[in-house]
């Protein structure tokens, strides 16, 4: 990360793309939902990543956010935004392309007979 190369104004600001980077890296609702469903069975320790805040050790699954310290994360758990998100993730499965296809009057996808005997 550095200065914006095509910066004309003498202001110390980064490119708008850098500012929006977090948005692109954030997981979608359905991905988070799947992760939550999966994590109930198998929980593995978070890997160390020096690029992430707090070495990537303090993570909120629901909001897909990393925190610098445990206390900060616990503070986040108390926020309205987090609680709203948890409620949302406890609800029904997010809309997918399959739901859209079924709503359009299509049947379930047909993959044909199994090629390899199980």
């Amino acid at each position: 990360m550095g200065k914006c190369p095509n910066r004309k104004v003498k202001k110390r600001r980064y490119s708008h793309k850098t500012a929006r980077l977090a948005k692109f890296l954030r997981k979608g609702d359905d991905a988070v939902y799947d992760e939550l469903q999966r994590s109930d069975s198998a929980k593995n320790p978070l890997p160390f990543d020096e690029d992430l805040p707090g070495m990537g050790q303090y993570y909120c699954l629901h909001c897909d956010r990393y925190f610098a310290h445990e206390s900060v994360r616990d503070e986040h758990f108390k926020t309205k935004r987090h609680k709203k998100r948890v409620k949302e993730m406890m609800g029904p499965k997010p809309h997918t392309q399959l739901d859209a296809d079924l709503a359009a009057g299509m049947g379930m996808p047909d993959n044909g007979p199994k090629l390899m005997p199980v």
Partner: peptide, 24 residues
Amino acid sequence: AYRRLHGKDMTQDSTFEFERKRNR
């Protein structure tokens, strides 16, 4: 999706079985 969920459109019908994604 809304119309299906709230019973505005027909949901269960044998005519829906014909159009489907065929991956084979």
